[in-house]
Simulated assay, not measured.
Amino acid sequence: MPELVVLTEQLLAPVPGGTGRYTRELAAALAATAPEGWVVSGVAARHRNARGAEVDGLAGSRMLPLPRRGLTLAWEYGVPLWPGGDVVHAPTPLAPATARRGGVLVVTVHDTVPFTHAETLTPRGAAWHRAVIKRAARKADAIVVPTDTVAAELAEHAPGPARVHVVGHGVPDVLRTPPSAEAVASVVAAHRLPETYVLAVGTVEPRKGLDVLIAAMADPGAPDLPLVVVGPTGWGGVDLRALAAQHGLPPGRLRVLGPLTDTELAVVLHRATVLAAPSRAEGFGLPVLEAMAVGVPVVHSDAPALVEVAGGAGVAALREDPADLARALTSVVDSPERAAAMVDRGRTRAATFTWAHAAESVWRLHLRLLTEKRAR
């Protein structure tokens, strides 16, 4: 029986982040849309407890003989350790150096931040990503990117013979579906959610521009609303409360909720007045898509990928410009008519992005590549 292996190691990372959501959602969708006779399995490095890498619908979850650091080094230095299967999809650049004979290797590259905004990553992380992305461009059978923006930037910074295919992300059903009254009551009480608020979702790290957002919320031109931030703490020592004090944003106007379950996030997202996405750089921007899908107006930075994903349904603000971000947020909050029109456009835009469509596109790519290899 032919097998597609999805590398699920990102699900076991200390901070899985947006690439962790991508890994889980795409793997589940690939299993749900598998052609007749195919099996889809998950493979990760060796861990004492790998339950976090289990994904609904996968036929099984295996561990390779090396721990995460050993596996990373082995593949970094070209050790030919194939994770099994006829075709392999790496949802991040952590991938084998090359496909085994007769096999297919496809790697997802989420962004070109290691090339364009290396200062927003650790030096080690930026260098590693540049090296493995360049290798994938040379050695993989194909690369999947989430936007035309990343495809163009990849051609500039990491050209190679690997085919590049644009496949967008999707929105999980748990976020699209309005939460129950019981869930709303529970989450509102547990997190003391205000009635109205500006929401930001993402890992708390320099690239996300949350320092700019806090400065914007303290600007006299900003809407007089609380700021709610959802997401785990990443690298870089971004202290949101210290930034709020520095810019004069009263403590009562900042709520830092940390990481939430999808059920909790659904409540927080559905109740938001407006979503702010002030990133310095992105490859896609899942929170923008998710907010549009549930009917929340979006203000995003002018990072090209965010502009592409929003497709004109959001309001763009200049990066690194708190005053312009404050103006953009106020223009939405103070105009219910404008906000309602943005919601309509956002829902229409988001409806074109689904995980099922993403999985079907990935399956077509893998099957075509496998057929071509077998015909040689």
Rank of each mutant, 00 (worst) to 15 (best):
M1H: 13
V5Y: 02
P16T: 11
T19M: 04
T19G: 03
R21V: 14
R24T: 14
R24W: 12
E25V: 00
A28R: 12
A32S: 14
T33D: 15
P35W: 02
W38I: 02
W38Y: 13
H47Y: 13
D56M: 05
D56I: 02
L58C: 05
S61L: 14
S61H: 11
R62D: 13
T72A: 13
P80H: 09
G84H: 01
T92W: 00
P96R: 03
R100S: 08
G102A: 05
G102C: 01
G103S: 13
V109I: 14
D111C: 03
V113S: 09
T120C: 12
T120Y: 14
L121G: 03
T122S: 15
P123A: 13
R124M: 11
V132R: 01
K134G: 13
A140T: 09
T147I: 07
T147L: 08
V150E: 10
A162S: 09
D173T: 15
V174N: 08
V174H: 07
P178H: 06
E182H: 11
A183C: 04
A185H: 07
A185L: 05
S186I: 06
S186N: 11
S186T: 12
R192D: 15
L193R: 12
Y197S: 01
A200C: 09
T203W: 01
V204K: 00
P206D: 02
G209N: 05
I214E: 03
M217T: 03
G221K: 00
A222E: 02
T233C: 08
T233F: 06
V238I: 08
L240T: 04
L243F: 07
L243W: 12
Q246R: 14
P250L: 08
P251S: 11
G258N: 12
D262S: 08
V267L: 10
V267M: 06
L269K: 14
L269P: 15
A272V: 09
L275S: 07
G285E: 07
L286P: 00
A291F: 07
V298M: 13
V299D: 10
P304F: 05
V315D: 08
L318G: 12
L318Q: 10
E320H: 06
L329W: 02
A341Y: 08
A350W: 12
W355D: 08
A359I: 00
A359D: 11
V362S: 03
R364I: 06
H366S: 07
L370D: 04
K373N: 06
R374A: 14
R376M: 09
